[in-house]
Design a binder for these strands. Structure first.
Lengths: 338, 338
DNA sequence: CTGTTAGCGCATTCAG
DNA sequence: CTGAATGCGCTAACAG
C-alpha cells in the first residue's frame, strides 16, 4: 500500500448526496448534462475532499488511456527538442506523452521500455530510431497498438502505421552542391556509424550529390569514431586542395572539427568550409558560427501525432503517404560564407 | 475502443485449463508456488496467445503502480543526463520512470504534467527545479504521493520528502579562489537569472568566495540575458585588469564567451580565464577546452531514488539528511591552465 | 436529469 | 496446490 488511500468518487458522491454515476457525469463533462444545482454540489464536494480522478481506473473501464509513449535513443539535443514538441502536440490533442530513453541505442533498455509502455496500454507509440530489428519489433508490438516511426526508412507495413522522416539525404545532396559552388575542390563527409541508419541516409545523399556535380570533385568518407581529427585536418591542409568542404554528421561533430581547425589556425571559410546538421544551439554560438540545416520540429511532431490521431478516429487532416519526408532548411553562417 | 482487444488472463486460464487465480500466481511468481505441470501449461498458453499483463489493472488492484514520475525543465543537456541515470536506477529497483518536461520552466505545463502523474497514481515523484511556488505545489501534491526534489533548497517538510542538491555554491566559491590563484585581478560572474534558484546558488557561492579571498580582488556580476558579449569582453580587455577570470553560469554560456573571445583574439588563458559548470560535452570539444565542474550523476540519481525506495518500505540504505548535497569535482582544462 | 447495475483486468483472501 | 468470489475506481448503458 503505497499511497495512504486517495479520495474516490464514492466519497464525493456521498458528500454531495448523489450517486457515483452522477459524479462521474459532471466531472467528465460527458454528453450528459446535469442540473446546475447538482453540478455545483458535486464540484464543491470534489474540491473540498481533494478528489483526483484515477485515470488508471478510467482507462481500464473505457479501454483508452489517452497516453502516448515515446522512445528516443537519448534525452538530449535533437531528440530532446523533438520530444518537447511532441509533448506539446499531444497536449493540444488531449493526450499526454510519456518519454522514455533507450539509453543510447541499447536494445535491451529499448525493449524493456517498449514492454512497459505496452503493458500500460498506451493508445499509441512513437519510436525514434529503433535499435531492434524488424522481427524483434514485430514480435513485441504486434498487439495492435499503433506505432509511428521517426526516421524509420522502409519498415514493413504490418509493424508501423507510418513514419515521418527527416530529409537528411536531400540536405546532404544539396550541401555538396553548395560546397562546390563555394569553390571547394575536395569534399569530405565525416560520418558517425554509431547512428547506423541516419548515417546511411546522410552518406547516401552525399554520394548522390557528388555524382550529380557538373564537374567532378575528389571526395572522401571518414568516420568520427576512428578519426584523429588533428592529424586528419593537418593532412588535409598539406594536401593539394585549395579549399576543403566538410559535411559533418551533426553540429557536434562540426564543433569538434571547428575547434581543431581553430587550434591549427586554419582559415575558415577560406581554406576550410564546414556544414553541420540540426541547427543545435552550439552551431550559432561557435566561432566561426556553423552553417547547418534546421529541423522543422513543429512539422515533424505534428505529422507524427496526426498520424496517430487519425488512427484513433479523431477527425484530423493527415498525409496519406506512409513515409512522410520533412525537408530541412539551410541556415548559412560563417563557416561557408565567403 | 482504441486497441482491438488484448488477451487477458481469463483467456490464458481457459487455454491452460486452469483458473485465473492460478494464472495470476504463476505469472507473477508470487509467494505461492504451483506444480511444475501447471506452470508449464500456463506459461505455454500465455506465450502462444501473446498475453501481456495489463499493469493498469494490476496497479488498480493492488494500489501500487511501480511507476515513478520525473519532471524536468527541459529534455536536454544536464537534465537529460540526469534523467537517463534516474531511469537506470529506477529500473534497477524494479520501477520505471516516466519523464515529462515542463517546457522550459513553464508553470502551466509543469502543473499539467504533475496533475497527470498524480492521476496516474505514480508511486513517487521526482521534480527538478519546480517553477511553481510552495503554496501552489503544496495544494497539488498534498495527496500523499512522496516527492523528492532535485536542486530544491529550503522546501517545507510537508511538501517534499527531501531533496538532493548539487553543490553549486561550493563549486563557485572554490572557483573564485582558483581564479585568484591563477593570477586573475578581476573576477566576474556571468549569470542567468532565467534559472532563478540555481543562479542564486551560484551567485551566492561566488560572493562568498570573493569575501573569503586573502587579498581582495575587484569583481562584478552580469547576466547573460542583458549582455552584449562582444562589447562586454572588449571593455574588459581595455580595462586595467591584466587577467580577467570569468565564472560562467554553465558550459553553454562559457562556450559563447569563449567563441566571442576567439573572435576578438583574446589570449586564453593569459588574458582571460574561464570556468563553466556541468562538464557538458561541448566543454571538452571547444577550443580552447573549457575548465568546468563535473556532476556525479550516478550519486545524484541513486540518492534520489533511494529516498523514494526508503519511503516505499524497501530496505535500502539512505541518507538521513533531508537535503543531501552532492559535491561537484573540478575538471581543469585549457581555459585556466597556465 | 439521476440512480442502478454490470463490467474493465487483475490480485487477493479464503475455502476446497 | 487450486479455484470461486470479492473488490480496486471508474465508465457506460439502461431504467426510472
Amino acid at each position: 500500500m503505497s499511497n495512504p488511500k486517495q479520495v474516490t468518487i464514492v466519497e464525493v458522491a456521498a458528500a454531495a448526496g448523489v450517486s457515483i454515476a452522477t459524479v462521474s457525469n459532471v466531472l467528465n463533462r460527458g454528453g450528459i448534462r446535469s442540473s446546475k444545482e447538482t453540478i455545483r454540489k458535486v464540484e464543491l464536494a470534489a474540491e473540498q475532499l481533494g478528489y483526483r480522478r484515477n485515470t488508471n481506473a478510467a482507462g481500464l473501464s473505457r479501454n483508452k488511456t489517452f497516453e502516448i509513449g515515446l522512445i528516443v535513443p537519448v534525452l538530449g539535443g535533437y531528440y530532446g527538442q523533438l520530444a518537447e514538441q511532441l509533448q506539446l502536440e499531444a497536449h493540444r490533442a488531449g493526450y499526454h506523452l510519456s518519454v522514455f530513453s533507450s539509453g543510447g541505442f541499447d536494445p535491451a533498455i529499448e525493449r524493456r521500455n517498449l514492454e512497459v509502455l505496452l503493458q500500460r496500454r498506451v493508445d499509441g507509440l512513437i519510436c525514434h530510431g529503433l535499435a531492434m530489428g524488424f522481427e524483434s519489433t514485430r514480435s513485441i508490438v504486434n498487439s495492435g497498438t499503433p506505432l509511428v516511426l521517426i526516421n524509420g526508412w522502409g519498415w514493413p507495413e504490418d509493424i508501423a502505421l507510418g513514419a515521418v522522416n527527416l530529409g537528411f539525404s536531400e540536405a546532404c545532396r544539396q550541401s555538396t552542391k553548395l560546397l562546390a559552388d563555394r569553390g571547394c575542390d575536395l569534399l569530405v563527409y565525416v560520418g558517425n556509424k554509431h547512428s547506423k541508419v541516419i548515417d546511411g541516409q546522410r552518406r547516401q545523399g552525399f554520394e548522390t550529390g557528388i555524382a550529380q556535380l557538373s564537374s567532378p570533385i575528389p571526395h572522401q568518407f571518414v568516420d568520427t569514431k576512428d578519426l584523429d581529427m588533428e592529424r586528419f585536418l593537418q593532412e588535409l591542409m598539406m594536401g593539394p586542395a585549395k579549399r576543403v568542404g566538410i559535411m559533418a554528421f551533426d553540429d557536434y561533430v562540426a564543433l569538434r572539427l571547428l575547434s581543431m581547425a581553430n587550434k591549427l589556425k586554419i582559415d575558415m571559410p577560406d581554406r576550410l568550409q564546414l556544414i553541420g546538421i540540426n541547427n543545435d544551439s552550439v552551431s550559432s554560438h561557435a566561432y566561426p558560427s556553423i552553417s547547418t540545416w534546421d529541423i522543422p520540429y513543429y512539422l515533424q511532431a505534428n505529422t507524427a501525432i496526426s498520424k496517430l490521431l487519425h488512427k484513433f478516429g479523431h477527425n484530423v487532416a493527415t498525409c496519406e503517404e506512409r513515409e512522410f519526408e520533412v525537408p530541412l532548411t539551410f541556415i548559412e553562417r560563417e563557416t561557408t560564407k565567403i
